[in-house]
Design a binder for these strands. Structure first.
Lengths: 342, 342
DNA sequence: TTGTAGGCGTTATCAG
DNA sequence: CTGATAACGCCTACAA
């Protein structure tokens, strides 16, 4: 109904002239331009992006796939991406994968059919991802977010997970902790979990301490304290725990306090991600801050560079240790009462 | 390059036949079908949705606009919407408005140009929204999420904010509280804030108690304790506070504890939204649960019904009071020491 | 400054 | 069962 043809008719000009009234108004006689604009308004004309996209062979759309939006780290990053994309004239198609390969597959296929100009993906394990393997054969620009560079075929935006977790570990060691454990969500095989655990291990070893295997929690957002009891109790129980994300840390703190323990009195807890909320809790969360807003901006910028055909080499984003109230000195070891001097 | 024409050529058939191999394979001779499929695979053919959308005059896309993704209530709802939409064959274009009218305007215009099949919007105040006024003149189906029905021109999905907050208030009253206040984010004029405050007021009045004005915090996610001190201290200070969202409540609890007060010992705190995280905190959050996942499902279903030309009449979604550890009995009033009997 | 015309990739209609 | 053709709405050489 309200297309350029009708606008042209009503204005008494050709399709081309009507089109030019929008794409290059300065090339029109003012009077002509006015007539077209007038007609467009009268008809409630609104340019059809779908037709523009078909014609231009470009959609100005980016496809974004995150594992979930339940974790604020992804939601906050997505928010930043959306703002950056909008500022550059791009729209976002947003999907969640739950890390399920079949969904990842379907989502990416769908987005390719939609002819998105670029993809920003977060997958479980970039090294063993079927969907990434397939994407190598396509020529749609693709950027990994959070996933380490891996095969280095795809550009990637994220912090240095290895160093970041090593820093967190050293922080706890500096506070005096010696028996430090680490817990993670149900995806121990994820590339980030591996790197973070490796960072922890290295820092422990470098300090002459014993590193423990990553303890797997049944969910990404909730600890099962019962699974932790064995390593907590006793004289040689842990005095500090690193978590692979803030939600786990928050849940752990809650469970500990509910079980009558104090944080950090009985156990120090550190998170990872630096979600906003962590600042406001009591005890506030000690954590490794990933700059989520910068993530979003850099991700979009990098992806747009890829789309322009450039070869951006994004550097790892800087992480920051945010000291909160959830990590402190270890409890004083139990001392047998000594005879007093006096 | 890899379009139907080339596939047709390679398969030695016409465009139409090539197309049919995908849209109605059963209408082709098996051998023909095989040849087309073979050719498609050889060329890496992938149907072009943009062309399909242009041709079909429908995009199978929904436009979603939320105020922000920093608040898990929106992120969790969005996640549910995405899953429901995907299940129905729709994609989501996601945007954030920060409640800024100019962004709302630009976003909606953009989505209309993109010819989304429907819009799901959350605005600050549905009664005084310029963008909604404009949308009334368009014929793109539009659904409000969270906003109360307002003018009743647009369908709307959400809880009954009035009753929900009244329920929360009655809960505190039942616990023994008499001096109960309410705090909100910086958008006191939002339709939901109004309704919730009204619900609070009614419940207070019905119990013969004094309702107070909504106290405005500078941000949606963070309290300024200094602004609250006046109403907290003293013998007639508040014993309980209702918050318009969970993040405010969590922040309030953190600030209170950091200032040496206990929750709920000194002050009971209730949130609103029921974000997952609230369960895991210590003290766990007493709150009014909005069924976010159901929100998402119902929103998508309702919007799809609108798109089909039906006239769905979504009922308010049921809210649930979740009792947590952050609300309890009020502190015993200060008693002047009495002469002991003995 | 404005008009003409072809094509972006797909699908529905109508013949054959 | 298959082929030819027009149309979805827009843009942009190329002409005039």
């Amino acid at each position: 109904m309200a297309n350029l043809i009708n606008v042209a008719k009503l204005a008494g000009v050709s399709r081309a002239t009507a089109a030019r009234a929008f794409s290059s108004p300065e090339s029109l006689r003012p009077e002509t331009h006015r007539r077209v604009v007038e007609a467009a308004r009268a008809l409630g004309f609104r340019p059809n992006k779908v037709a523009q996209q078909l014609r231009a062979q470009a959609t100005l759309m980016l496809g974004v796939m995150v594992p979930s939006l339940d974790n604020p780290v992804f939601a906050e990053q997505l928010q930043a991406m959306e703002e950056a994309a909008r500022a550059a004239g791009y729209s976002l198609i947003v999907t969640t994968s739950s890390y399920e390969p079949s969904r990842e597959e379907a989502i990416v296929e769908e987005m390719l059919r939609q002819r998105v100009d670029g993809l920003a993906l977060t997958v479980a394990d970039a090294d063993h991802s079927a969907v990434l393997a397939k994407l190598r054969r396509e020529n749609t620009p693709c950027l990994l977010v959070h996933n380490p560079p891996a095969t280095s075929y795809f550009s990637s935006v994220g912090v240095d997970n290895h160093t970041a977790m090593a820093d967190a570990t050293r922080h706890l060691i500096a506070l005096g902790h010696r028996r430090i454990g680490m817990i993670g969500g149900p995806l121990l095989q994820s590339d980030r979990a591996r790197l973070r655990h490796e960072g922890y291990r290295e820092a422990m070893v470098a300090a002459g301490l014993t590193s423990l295997p990553l303890i797997e929690m049944p969910r990404h957002t909730q600890v099962a304290l019962s699974q932790l009891e064995p390593v907590l109790g006793g004289a040689d129980g842990l005095t500090a725990v690193l978590c692979t994300n803030d939600l786990l840390a928050i849940s752990l703190i809650g469970e500990l306090r509910r079980s009558g323990r104090s944080v950090p009195g009985d156990l120090s807890v550190m998170g990872f991600d630096g979600i906003e909320l962590g600042r406001h809790l009591y005890p506030s969360l000690s954590t490794v801050v990933q700059p989520r807003a910068e993530f979003g901006r850099v991700a979009v910028e990098t992806l747009l560079a890829l789309i322009r055909g450039e070869d951006p080499q994004p550097r790892p984003l800087p992480h920051v240790l945010r000291e909160g109230e959830s990590a402190g000195s270890p409890p004083a070891p139990y001392q047998a009462p000594e005879p007093s001097v006096s």
